[in-house]
Amino acid sequence: MLGYLVKRLLRSVITLFIIVVIVFVMLRQMPVEGYFNDYDNMTPEAVQNALQNMGLLDPIPTQLTRFIKDFVRGDLGVSYRYRVNYPIAKIVADKAPLSLTFGGIAMLIGLPLGFGLGILMARSKGKWIAGIGTAYIVIMQSVPLAVIYLVIQLVFTSLFRIPLLYSSSNPRTWILPIATLALPTIATYGLWLRRYMVDEQNRDYIKLAKAKGVPSKFIWYRHVFRNAVVPLVQLIPASILATLSGSIYVESLYSIPGMGGLLVDVIKRQDNTMVQALVILFAAVSILGLLLGDLLMVLVDPRISLTAKTRTR
């Protein structure tokens, strides 16, 4: 287990390193306007001086090692356009909790509902309930989320006379963002749980259990559900951590001052250092999520033993 842990961790670090290098080198190719607030009013000498002071004229390997050293210490650099000379880590620290709260509550609602939908669909195979569930999943999977979210915002705010935008003092404005965030979670988990349950249900041991008269409730929850849920457990840490990066759509639609909207703002203002920091941060979060998912999988399913596999070989 420890050996696997170390190996898996090392792999994640290497992946992250490659991504940092690629992103860093690519963003150095961007026009230098992205580092100044009032580029148009500056003389070329002033631009050169400022770039020199920021260390942006150093060779790229030097810049890269400096960036990585800072990154490890939790320093993401400073923003030059979004908020002039303000540390990015502080901006993120201000905004991430809000995204995490919204996403976390949405997950808390979405996960049980998704599991419920999956079980319901697997048990009522071929009936109208399963048909409705399938229709819902197809719509969530195929129609771009931007459209779904926009239509929901449009219809429900006018239907229930809820204010259009988020305000921290009015809890009524929190309902719609959380509900919309939960919708795709429900669809994803419902879809996969149903599929895994239907697969599991056709296994020989389930047929045997039926034949020897095990009560159907017991079969469904102790055997089918428990085995079907194992592959889904792998997704959960990544889903929870992904809420940290916020939902770009929901946050900008309801103008929630979180992380997702931040990325859009920063791209529109062409703040190079912010884009770089956020992209790397989001990538790191996703890598960490997948890592935790793999580890959780080992804990949950006793059949998966990653070290034993190598030993038998």
Binding site: S12, T15, I19, V23, M26, L27, Q29, M30, A242, S245, I248, L263, I267, V275, V279, F282, A283, S286, I287, L290
Partner: peptide, 15 residues
């Protein structure tokens, strides 16, 4: 596959 696809999309389109 470790990086969210949206991030790659944004990065390439931004550059």
């Amino acid at each position: 596959s470790n990086v969210p696809q949206t991030i790659i999309l944004i990065l390439i389109s931004y550059i």
